[in-house]
């Protein structure tokens, strides 16, 4: 078993089988245009590159090259489809353990690289591309903000290894001055603090959750199921609103709606 996750890579390979890879990008990115429901779509994954030039980004973390590389892959799509009435969908396959933590990263402005990626995904969405985030593994913090969180629709596979969070448990415990056990007890009763995908789903941020047979190495059935779901998500976006308002409305995220209503009334 490798020290890093291969889920993102395997799902990328399965969903974009046979498609030609986009060249000129950092080796930690996989980008290809493959068919989805009879139309071309761009599949993008961040994968571990054990030889990454940046040593703190060798396990699939989103670092400097990954942030700017994602931006570049999405920018290329926006430019290519600029004058086309039908914009290709973008499928962000999300399996990102964290952003890269390192001296080089901070010094060279990793925040700016991740802003580059978020900016491109957001502009693609505003330009009319359906942007779908497919969560097959971890979707952590800054890494998820850069790769996936700007999507019109988020789909998560049901599996204990699929988790969205702002910080790993050990760090979160330290920062909030709690033990890991205390944190886990709290998380069980406070949905936004929980690490499991059902608690996350209760916040209303996911469009769909799906069970699959083999999350590590998707079967033909799994691929068919996920492909169908992605197609439905793309169709659901088509011609509709281009912002993130479809994520609002859950009881566990009631304050987010209430604040917006009050702001509007007082604007």
């Amino acid at each position: 078993m490798s020290s890093y996750s291969l889920r993102g890579l395997h799902w990328f390979q399965a969903l974009s089988a046979g498609a030609k890879m986009l060249e000129g990008l950092p080796p930690s990115l996989r980008v290809a245009d493959a068919e989805l429901g009879g139309k071309a779509a761009r599949f993008i994954a961040v994968v571990a590159d054990p030889h990454n030039r940046f040593p703190r980004a060798r396990n699939g973390e989103v670092g400097l090259l990954e942030g700017w590389g994602l931006a570049s892959a999405v920018d290329e799509l926006i430019a290519a489809d600029q004058d086309k009435p039908c914009k290709r969908a973008v499928i962000a396959i999300v399996d990102v353990p964290s952003q890269a933590y390192g001296r080089r990263e901070e010094a060279l402005g990793i925040h700016q690289a991740l802003a580059g990626a978020a900016d491109s995904y957001a502009r693609a969405r505003l330009a009319g591309h359906a942007v779908i985030g497919l969560l097959v593994g971890k979707a952590m913090s800054g890494a998820f903000l850069a790769h996936g969180y700007q999507a019109n629709r988020l789909i998560a596979l049901r599996d204990p290894g699929v988790m969205v969070h702002a910080m790993g448990k050990a760090s979160a415990a330290r920062v909030t001055l709690r033990s890991v056990e205390e944190l886990e007890t709290l998380a069980a009763s406070v949905p936004p603090m929980a690490y499991d995908i059902d608690s996350y789903a209760s916040l209303g941020l996911l469009w769909e959750t799906l069970s699959v047979e083999q999350i590590e190495r998707p079967t033909a059935n799994d691929v068919a199921r996920v492909t169908e779901c992605l197609g439905l998500a793309v169709a659901d976006v088509a011609g509709g609103i281009r912002d993130l308002s479809s994520r609002l409305g859950a009881t566990n995220r009631e304050a987010s709606s209430k604040v917006r209503q009050l702001l509007r009334a007082q604007w």
């Binding site: 957001a122 969180y149 969205v164 936004p192 994520r247």
Partner: peptide
């Protein structure tokens, strides 16, 4: 961190 995933979601909204 006490509102973890709702803070993260709000920040994605701010970015957007």
């Amino acid at each position: 961190l006490q509102e973890a995933n709702l803070g993260l979601a709000a920040i994605a909204d701010i970015h957007a």
